[in-house]
Design a protein around this nucleic acid. Structure first.
Lengths: 232, 232
DNA sequence: CCGCGCTTGTGAGCACGTGAACAAGCGCAA
DNA sequence: TTGCGCTTGTTCACGTGCTCACAAGCGCGG
């Protein structure tokens, strides 16, 4: 335990972890405006939460604020990046280059935020060999080589539902240990692998639920909606 | 509190609502296999949750199961669709036809699941007038007309961050009351409007957090990960 | 008709996340 | 140095969601 900085296994609540990237985004915005420090209240405005929640969340990272003043924007930004593991780039591989995969491969937002798309794979021979955004699509059978070659730890699945589980298995076999799944199906992974899922149609269906509750029946009140969706 | 019809003010927890579409998807799969009934345990397998949670969630919809037997797949499917407001199609408008918007417009998954893309809007004159997937892109200034014309209640924002709030305001002014935001920024809406957000880079950053915790520091254990992400 | 096995529906306890409130602590001015 | 205003960090109470466990209830076979 002798170690310069107080290494502590502060376990940060999952809900807080999900908000950290939003705070970071807000801090970038604030630093762009040249503000040296920021209060929890201001940060709450920028990030869309409330001040109490902001303070509590930030306290999990450590006591990086100064009472009476606020948080040093630059320093907090650094600490947060470090905590999120964003001090280095994470190379990602995208599997499946249909509509969605193609768009993701061209999406500049990933590279900008530290997740350069290092490789693309697909099973369709007609797609393999094409170049998208400067990256050549390779066959999914080469997954193991690719993952090793580019040190890839994060994989994105943008295949049709039927192929998703197989692709996930190949990724995991190749050493990928974090997966973001866009396919509208359940993918099972071993416990040491992180999995998050985004289903676009599901989001619409959730909106539909509240939309219907409002329109149908009484025009009174009750049955309020989402906003601050869990995994926004 | 005297109230004639048993007002089904069954208030379904938000967490449950977010799972209903997943159950529905699983039911479609099960009915495709020709099973007449399904147990909570089997449905749990298909949907990736546990049986107790499934039963509790379904109980919010009503007592649609038969003890000793299970749930009638077809009937449950119907009830769930009804509850989610999926007995009719919801026309949606997509604003912003860059990479992501373009992909979403071409994505068949929306129409398949009852959300046909009725209109597309953009602010760029070079994009306005082009046809994507059979739909002509119109200028965002026409939003009010478009929303009325197609009875649009749900809008999707796929613009750059800077334009998102303005687009949201225009949508709301045009009568849209549910919004799905893909732009990486905070959008503020009045309380009677539903808003959900999906930020692709944020998802990767969350994965990065757990990925780093595993790789960095001690190779012991602790600091477990996501899976069953709140808004999957 | 009766008993048995199976599965639902639900109540109770617990963990987690949220919101409000307030003392502690810092900077600054006098 | 002292006092004052401002903002953090934390504590406490509450609400929501989750898990467990089990009685209630249905169908079926004898």
């Amino acid at each position: 335990m002798v170690d310069g900085t107080k290494r502590q296994a502060r376990k940060i609540p999952e809900a807080t972890v999900a908000r950290l990237p939003i705070y970071l985004r807000s801090l970038l915005e604030a630093s762009g405006d040249g503000m040296p420090t920021i209060s929890s209240e201001r940060l709450a405005e920028l990030s869309g939460f409330n001040a109490a929640k902001v303070r509590k969340d930030l306290s999990y990272l450590g006591s990086y604020g100064t009472r009476g003043v606020g948080y040093d924007v630059e320093y907090l930004q650094f600490q947060m990046s470090r905590e999120l593991g964003l001090t280095k780039d994470w190379h990602v591989v995208i599997a499946g280059l249909g509509n969605l995969g193609h768009a993701l491969a061209n999406y500049g937002g990933f590279t900008d935020r530290g997740f350069p798309v290092a490789a693309l794979v697909d099973a369709d021979p007609k797609v393999v060999g094409t170049v998208i955004n400067g990256v050549t699509v390779r066959h999914i059978d080469e997954m193991a080589d690719i993952a090793g070659e580019f040190q890839i730890a994060i994989g994105i699945i943008a295949t049709p539902a039927g192929a998703a589980q197989d692709v996930a298995d190949r990724m995991i076999a190749a050493g990928v240990s974090s997966i973001l799944n866009f396919a509208p199906t359940i993918v099972t992974v071993p416990p040491e692998v992180s999995l998050r899922k985004v289903d676009l149609a599901v989001e619409l269906q959730i909106l539909s639920f509240y939309q219907q509750r409002r329109g149908g029946g009484d025009a009174g009140s009750s049955s309020l909606p989402p906003e601050t969706a869990p995994a926004g």
